[in-house]
C-alpha cells in the first residue's frame, strides 16, 4: 500500500515536473522566438547600403547569403546590422540569417539600379541593299553592376545612312529586351544603328553592299593568245557597283566544245582570257543573271 502511494505520489510529482518542464520549454521557445528576430528591408536597390534589424539580447552570428556574397560575422542582438553597399551590388534574392542557440532567417530582394549601359546585338555585319527584314537588332539594358533591368522602358533605335533621312523606332522593353527588324537601304555604304535609353547609347555599323548584279554586258576582242572578254562595269538594280570578288562565269562554245572560266570582279569589271581560234560564242553569268552572247568569227 505504501508502495502504491509512493508510486502514485512519485508519478504525480513526475507528471507535474514534466509538465512544468515542458511548459517552461514551450514558454522559453515562444519567448525566444519572440526575442530573436530578423527585420529585413522591404525594398533595396543594387549598390545601396542596407540595414538589417535584430531583436533580442546577447551575441549571435550573422550570415548574409546572396548572389556572389556569403558574409559571416558576430553581432550583438538588438542592434542594427549595416550591410555595406559593396555587398549588395548584385540584384537578386538575399537571405539574412542570425544564429544564436537556433537560427532565424528572412529573405529580401535587391532590385537592379538605374540603367547604365546598353548591350546592342546587330545582325548581319554586311547586308545586300534592298532586302526586306534583313537587319535585326536586340538591346538589353543593364545597370552599372551588370544586373539586367527588367522594368519596362523605351529604347529608341535610330538607323541612319549617308544621304537618307534617319529613321527612329521607339520600342518598349519586354522582359528587359527591346528588338527591331528593318529592311536594308537602297544605297551601298555604312548604316549606323544607335540604340538609346535616357542618356545612354550604344552604336553599331552595318555595311550595306550592292545586291545581285542587275544586268551583265560583255565585250571581247581577239588577241594573239585567243580571246579577251570583259564585262562592262557591273551594278545592282539600284546602281551600286557590285563588290570586288563577285564571281562572273564566262562560257565559251566552239562547235561542240564548251569551256568555262570563273573570273572575280575587280574594280567593277571581270575579265577572262579564253584560248580559241575558231568561231566562238561567249556568254557570261553571275548569280542568277545571264549576260548577252558575244559571237566572234575565226581569226
Amino acid at each position: 500500500m505504501s508502495w502504491s502511494i509512493n508510486t502514485v505520489c512519485r508519478n504525480r510529482s513526475l507528471r507535474s515536473t514534466l509538465g512544468l518542464a515542458l511548459g517552461t520549454m514551450v514558454l522559453a521557445a515562444v519567448a525566444f522566438s519572440q526575442d530573436m528576430n530578423v527585420r529585413v528591408p522591404s525594398s533595396a536597390a543594387a549598390g545601396d547600403s542596407i540595414s538589417i534589424g535584430t531583436t533580442g539580447s546577447g551575441s549571435a552570428t550573422f550570415y548574409l547569403i546572396g548572389p556572389t556574397v556569403s558574409l559571416k560575422h558576430d553581432v550583438q542582438l538588438g542592434t542594427e546590422i549595416v550591410v555595406p553597399s559593396k555587398q549588395t551590388e548584385i540584384a537578386g534574392q538575399y537571405k539574412a540569417i542570425v544564429c544564436s542557440e537556433h537560427c532565424q532567417s528572412a529573405d529580401f530582394f535587391v532590385a537592379p539600379a538605374k540603367a547604365a549601359s546598353l548591350t546592342l546585338l546587330v545582325h548581319p555585319s554586311r547586308v545586300p541593299v534592298g532586302q526586306n527584314d534583313a537587319i535585326s537588332g536586340v538591346a538589353l539594358a543593364f545597370d552599372e553592376y551588370g544586373n539586367l533591368i527588367f522594368e519596362p522602358s523605351t529604347v529608341d533605335f535610330q538607323l541612319s545612312a549617308k544621304g537618307s533621312t534617319p529613321t527612329i523606332r521607339s520600342v518598349q522593353t519586354q522582359n528587359g529586351v527591346a528588338w527591331f527588324r528593318a529592311p536594308s537601304g537602297k544605297a551601298a555604304g555604312a548604316l549606323q544603328i544607335t540604340a538609346s535609353l535616357h542618356d545612354i547609347a550604344a552604336r553599331r555599323v552595318v555595311q550595306q553592299v550592292a545586291s545581285e548584279p542587275c544586268n551583265l554586258r560583255i565585250k571581247g576582242q581577239r588577241t594573239r593568245k585567243g580571246v579577251l572578254v570583259e564585262t562592262e562595269p557591273i551594278r545592282d538594280c539600284a546602281g551600286n557597283p557590285v563588290p570586288d570578288g563577285t564571281v562572273v562565269t564566262f562560257t565559251a562554245k566552239a562547235g561542240n566544245e564548251i569551256s568555262t572560266v570563273d573570273a572575280p570582279v575587280k574594280q567593277d569589271v571581270a575579265r577572262a582570257q579564253i584560248q580559241a581560234k575558231g568561231p566562238l560564242v561567249v556568254s557570261a553569268a553571275s548569280g542568277v543573271v545571264m549576260g548577252n552572247e558575244l559571237r566572234l568569227e575565226a581569226q
Partner: peptide, 8 residues
Amino acid sequence: FYAPEGDV
C-alpha cells in the same frame, strides 16, 4: 524571347 538571329 529568342532573338531573330538566334544569338540570345
